[in-house]
Amino acid sequence: MIICPNCQAEMNEESKFCTECGTSLVEQATQQTQPTQQPNASQITITAPNIDIDLTDVKNKMTNYWQYLLQTAVHPSSSFANTHAIMGWIQVSVIALLTTFILAVFANESYLGLGFIDFVKIFFVQVAASLCPILVSFLVVRFMKKNPISFSQATAQFGGLLSLNVFILALVLIFSFLSPFGLADLILLLLGLTGIINIAAFNIYLYSTDNNSKIDSFIATIIGNVGYLILAVLIIRILLGLYLEGMSGGYLFEGIMYELFGSY
């Protein structure tokens, strides 16, 4: 039977016109008698989701950081022209990671042990310690010397002055793996050198950045050192208080973590 598309009347399959309304049924008959085609299993294609993990950006950042590290290690003052803000954050993270590994080696050699959670906590403490002089110098440069620089840019420029410390700390880490206590004198000498570089970098950055105010760069550098000294005294007082508490039966490391993070 054929259904008329106009009046829905039922007609014989041989009918060419609807006897009720006169509508042509030729096309309707062709459509209704044509078998429904089922898709062939061999013709069914399943498109997988396109998951493209692009590592090009990560590779480029690592390449740029290596070039930044080498250039600023040979010519530290070239970091003042650096505009790649992320380079400073990578630099701070690398220095903090190397320092944490060195502390972990000494802790394990002293049979104190260092768990993963403690390792992560010490790493973030080292990051915070590295950012303190950068923060002080940024505040002086931004608000006293009227230099319109962002904190990330200051981190990249200041971090370039510390590139030598990356190589020195890597050398200290190697010596620590070989014999942390047997090479203690050499390790202390190298660590003392990193401290000298930190002090030099702090003062050079404060003095050498562009000055757009009436305050002399030398005066701004002195004020920056006073501010950093006050911050250092506050930190030392906190640590000393925790140390004395630890001597009386408390747990020094746990106390420091609690003071810094609020819980552990």
Score class of each variant (00 low, 15 high):
2 I>G: 10
5 P>F: 12
11 M>Y: 05
13 E>V: 15
17 F>V: 11
19 T>E: 08
20 E>K: 13
20 E>D: 05
32 Q>D: 11
33 T>S: 11
39 P>V: 13
41 A>K: 14
43 Q>T: 10
44 I>E: 12
46 I>W: 04
53 I>H: 08
54 D>P: 06
56 T>K: 13
61 K>P: 08
62 M>P: 02
63 T>E: 11
64 N>P: 01
66 W>K: 08
66 W>N: 09
68 Y>Q: 09
69 L>T: 10
70 L>Y: 10
73 A>M: 13
74 V>P: 07
74 V>A: 09
74 V>I: 15
76 P>S: 04
80 F>E: 04
82 N>M: 06
85 A>T: 14
87 M>P: 02
94 V>C: 05
97 L>Y: 03
99 T>W: 04
104 A>G: 08
108 N>A: 04
108 N>V: 06
111 Y>N: 11
114 L>P: 00
120 V>Q: 03
126 Q>M: 12
128 A>L: 11
131 L>F: 04
132 C>E: 09
137 S>Q: 06
139 L>K: 08
139 L>Y: 01
150 S>M: 02
151 F>V: 07
158 F>M: 13
158 F>R: 00
159 G>N: 03
170 A>S: 14
175 F>A: 12
178 L>D: 00
180 P>E: 00
188 L>R: 10
189 L>K: 12
190 L>S: 08
190 L>Y: 05
192 G>M: 10
192 G>P: 05
193 L>R: 00
194 T>D: 13
196 I>A: 14
196 I>M: 12
200 A>F: 05
206 L>F: 03
208 S>M: 14
212 N>G: 07
220 A>M: 10
223 I>K: 01
225 N>H: 02
225 N>D: 14
232 A>G: 06
235 I>K: 01
238 I>Q: 13
240 L>W: 15
241 G>E: 11
244 L>Q: 14
249 G>K: 01
250 G>C: 09
259 E>P: 00
259 E>C: 06
